[in-house]
Protein backbone atom coordinates (compact mmCIF):
# COMPACT_ATOMS: atom_id res chain seq x y z
CA UNK A 1 0.00 0.00 0.00
CA UNK A 2 2.78 2.39 1.04
CA UNK A 3 4.69 1.55 -2.12
CA UNK A 4 1.75 2.32 -4.41
CA UNK A 5 1.28 5.69 -2.67
CA UNK A 6 4.98 6.42 -3.18
CA UNK A 7 4.74 5.47 -6.86
CA UNK A 8 1.62 7.61 -7.34
CA UNK A 9 3.28 10.58 -5.63
CA UNK A 10 6.39 10.09 -7.74
CA UNK A 11 4.29 9.99 -10.94
CA UNK A 12 2.44 13.20 -9.94
CA UNK A 13 5.79 14.87 -9.18
CA UNK A 14 7.33 13.68 -12.47
CA UNK A 15 4.31 14.86 -14.50
CA UNK A 16 4.38 18.26 -12.79
CA UNK A 17 7.92 18.73 -14.11
CA UNK A 18 6.65 18.58 -17.68
CA UNK A 19 7.91 21.53 -19.72
CA UNK A 20 5.02 21.58 -22.18
CA UNK A 21 3.12 24.82 -22.42
CA UNK A 22 0.32 26.13 -24.57
CA UNK A 23 1.50 28.71 -27.11
CA UNK A 24 -1.03 31.52 -27.40
CA UNK A 25 -1.92 32.72 -30.93
CA UNK A 26 -0.14 36.05 -30.36
CA UNK A 27 3.05 34.21 -29.29
CA UNK A 28 3.30 32.07 -32.43
CA UNK A 29 5.69 34.54 -34.03
CA UNK A 30 8.34 33.05 -31.72
CA UNK A 31 7.95 29.69 -33.49
CA UNK A 32 8.83 31.36 -36.81
CA UNK A 33 12.12 32.73 -35.50
CA UNK A 34 15.38 31.48 -36.98
CA UNK A 35 16.59 30.05 -33.67
CA UNK A 36 13.48 27.84 -33.49
CA UNK A 37 14.32 26.02 -36.75
CA UNK A 38 15.02 22.29 -36.51
CA UNK A 39 18.11 22.81 -38.65
CA UNK A 40 20.34 25.66 -37.46
CA UNK A 41 22.16 25.88 -40.81
CA UNK A 42 19.79 26.03 -43.79
CA UNK A 43 22.61 25.61 -46.35
CA UNK A 44 23.96 22.50 -44.59
CA UNK A 45 20.44 21.07 -44.37
CA UNK A 46 19.97 21.54 -48.13
CA UNK A 47 23.29 19.82 -48.90
CA UNK A 48 22.40 16.93 -46.54
CA UNK A 49 18.98 16.58 -48.18
CA UNK A 50 20.61 16.49 -51.62
CA UNK A 51 23.06 13.77 -50.48
CA UNK A 52 20.23 11.80 -48.86
CA UNK A 53 18.06 12.05 -51.99
CA UNK A 54 20.85 10.77 -54.26
CA UNK A 55 21.77 7.89 -51.89
CA UNK A 56 18.23 6.77 -51.08
CA UNK A 57 16.47 7.70 -54.34
CA UNK A 58 13.79 9.38 -52.30
CA UNK A 59 13.21 12.76 -50.77
CA UNK A 60 10.88 14.59 -48.44
CA UNK A 61 9.36 13.51 -45.16
CA UNK A 62 11.71 15.61 -43.08
CA UNK A 63 10.84 18.71 -41.14
CA UNK A 64 7.45 19.51 -39.67
CA UNK A 65 4.78 22.12 -39.78
CA UNK A 66 5.24 24.92 -37.30
CA UNK A 67 4.19 28.42 -36.46
CA UNK A 68 1.17 29.65 -38.33
CA UNK A 69 -1.19 32.27 -37.10
CA UNK A 70 -4.06 29.98 -36.14
CA UNK A 71 -6.36 31.74 -38.58
CA UNK A 72 -8.68 30.45 -41.29
Amino acid sequence: MLNSIKITLFCIFALSLSACSHVQPWEKGNLAKKEMAWEPDAMQATVDAQAYASKESSRGGYGSAGGGCGCN
Binding site: Q24, P25, W26, K28, C69, G70, C71, N72
Partner: peptide, 10 residues
Protein backbone atom coordinates in the same frame (compact mmCIF):
# COMPACT_ATOMS: atom_id res chain seq x y z
CA UNK B 1 -4.73 40.07 -26.64
CA UNK B 2 -5.13 38.01 -23.48
CA UNK B 3 -7.99 40.20 -22.22
CA UNK B 4 -9.76 39.86 -25.58
CA UNK B 5 -9.03 36.09 -25.60
CA UNK B 6 -7.70 36.38 -29.18
CA UNK B 7 -8.21 32.94 -30.79
CA UNK B 8 -5.96 33.46 -33.86
CA UNK B 9 -4.21 36.09 -35.93
CA UNK B 10 -5.63 38.38 -37.17
Amino acid sequence: ASEFKVPGMP
